[in-house]
Design a protein around this nucleic acid. Structure first.
Lengths: 136, 136
DNA sequence: ATTATTATTGTACCTTTGTCGCATTAATAT
DNA sequence: ATATTAATGCGACAAAGGTACAATAATAAT
């Protein structure tokens, strides 16, 4: 039933990339940071494994890509990431905003297992750059 | 600056499919309902056009697909779809839940333009089917 | 009604995301 | 040191989604 994981260099490298990042990452980001050392299929498999173990959670961005970020209060079989994600519509960066908020009531008969709240907009950096551009 | 749209049969067909559906639709759904009459590229272009006009909004599902649903209180340049979306993890159906809810406060400097809240779980139908299956 | 304009469509092609099977490699247990 | 079996790399592949371009068809102008 339980698959016993092995601690490999590849996993360590991916985990390091995740830990060093302040924002959520998509495959492209891993590819860049690892400069193509690790195969695409392996990257996806490892990230999926981390998700199954409750170490990482997935976020579907508004650009159709899936982003991955470290979990803080989760374990295998029980994800607990009911926080907000913010994605900048200019630089695409996704940030986890660790702020609990009330989950709306569902219509009768609907059962919730998970929740993702993605707010789109401009991050401070991009907002400033746009403001600078407008001035000219 | 403003592109004047033309009222074509293709657009009418896609709009009819959207109007007749109680849930949000992905490309696959359009393909099925139109039985491949309209080319893929055209479907995507028309849907994108509807989004630009504020007639339709996009929802990124947890399965990596983009879903489209009619807007109710939007216009071009100003989307106003701060409602919740529910996606069943079994049948993948996405439902718009027209219930306003308070948008959490963002950290200083962040500007919100849009919001998508996707709750995953079981819809009543799928929940019942699972319950029936468990009984056996 | 006819013609001119240009938005729209279909076609072909391409990129990206993400998955799968399989032989090989390497982490752990014996 | 050896056996076991996760994990990896490779190749191939399907699906999502977008682009360039020539052909078509709505609309505007005549």
């Amino acid at each position: 039933m339980d698959i016993r994981r092995r601690n490999t260099k590849t996993k360590q490298m991916i985990m390091t990339v995740l830990s060093d990042s302040s924002s959520a990452l998509c495959y492209e980001d891993f590819e860049k940071q690892l400069s193509g050392t690790i195969d695409k299929a392996t990257v996806y498999r490892i990230l999926q494994g981390f998700c199954d173990d409750g170490k990482v959670h997935k976020i579907s961005g508004n650009n159709g890509k899936t982003y991955y970020a470290l979990c803080h209060h989760c374990n295998s079989g029980n994800h607990n990431d009911n926080h907000i994600h913010f994605q900048c519509i200019r630089c695409q960066t996704i940030l986890c905003i660790d702020k609990q908020f009330s989950i709306p009531v569902l219509p009768p008969g609907y059962r919730m297992t998970d929740m993702h709240c993605l707010i789109s907009g401009h991050c401070p950096d991009c907002f400033n750059e746009i403001a600078d551009y407008e001035k000219k």
